[in-house]
Computed example of a mutant assay.
Amino acid sequence: MQVAELASAFKAAFAATGVPFGYETSCKLVPGKALNDRFLISTHKDAFASKGLKHFLPEEPCQAIPTPVWQWLEEGLPRADLLHFGFEPAASPVLKIYLERAGDFYAGLKYDPQARLLVYDALKWGTELSPVSSRYMCRPEQTETELRRTIEACFQAPGSEACQLALAYLERALQVLPAKQLLMLEVEEAGSVRQSFDLNLYDLEQTVTQWADLIRQTWQLQQPDNQPVETFLQTHGDKVLGHVSAGTGRDGQVFFTLYFGVTEQAPEAV
Rank of each mutant, 00 (worst) to 15 (best):
M1E: 03
V3I: 14
A7L: 07
A9M: 07
A13G: 00
A15F: 04
A16H: 01
A16I: 02
F21I: 00
E24S: 00
C27R: 11
L29V: 09
V30G: 09
P31K: 03
A34K: 08
L35K: 08
N36I: 01
N36R: 03
D37G: 08
F39L: 01
L40P: 05
L40M: 10
L40A: 10
S42C: 07
K45T: 15
D46S: 05
D46P: 02
A49T: 04
L53R: 06
K54F: 10
H55Y: 05
H55E: 13
E60T: 14
C62P: 12
C62A: 15
Q63W: 08
A64L: 11
P66L: 08
T67G: 12
W70D: 08
Q71W: 06
E75S: 13
E75H: 05
L82S: 07
G86I: 13
E88F: 13
E88V: 15
P89T: 10
A90T: 12
S92V: 13
P93R: 13
P93T: 06
I97V: 07
Y98H: 08
L99E: 04
E100Y: 00
R101Q: 03
F105C: 02
F105M: 06
F105G: 03
A107G: 00
A107M: 10
L109P: 02
K110W: 13
D112N: 15
L117A: 12
L117Q: 12
L117R: 05
V119L: 04
Y120R: 02
A122D: 01
L123F: 04
K124C: 11
W125Y: 01
G126A: 01
T127L: 03
T127V: 02
T127E: 00
T127D: 11
L129M: 12
S130N: 09
S130V: 15
S130P: 07
P131V: 12
S133N: 08
R135L: 09
C138K: 13
R139I: 12
Q142P: 08
R148M: 11
I151C: 02
E152A: 04
C154Q: 05
F155W: 07
Q156K: 05
S160N: 02
E161A: 09
L165Q: 01
L170F: 02
L177F: 08
K180E: 11
Q181G: 14
Q181S: 10
E188S: 14
A190E: 14
S192A: 12
R194Y: 15
S196C: 09
F197L: 04
Y202E: 13
E205Q: 07
Q206P: 02
T207V: 04
T207L: 06
V208W: 00
T209D: 11
W211D: 06
Q217G: 01
L221A: 04
Q222K: 02
Q222Y: 12
Q222V: 03
P224W: 08
P224T: 09
D225E: 12
Q227W: 07
V229N: 06
F232M: 05
T235D: 12
K239G: 06
V240L: 14
V240P: 00
L241Q: 03
H243W: 09
S245C: 14
A246L: 12
G247K: 06
R250C: 07
Q253E: 14
Q253D: 15
F255E: 15
F260N: 02
F260A: 03
F260M: 01
V262G: 13
P267V: 10
E268T: 01
V270R: 03
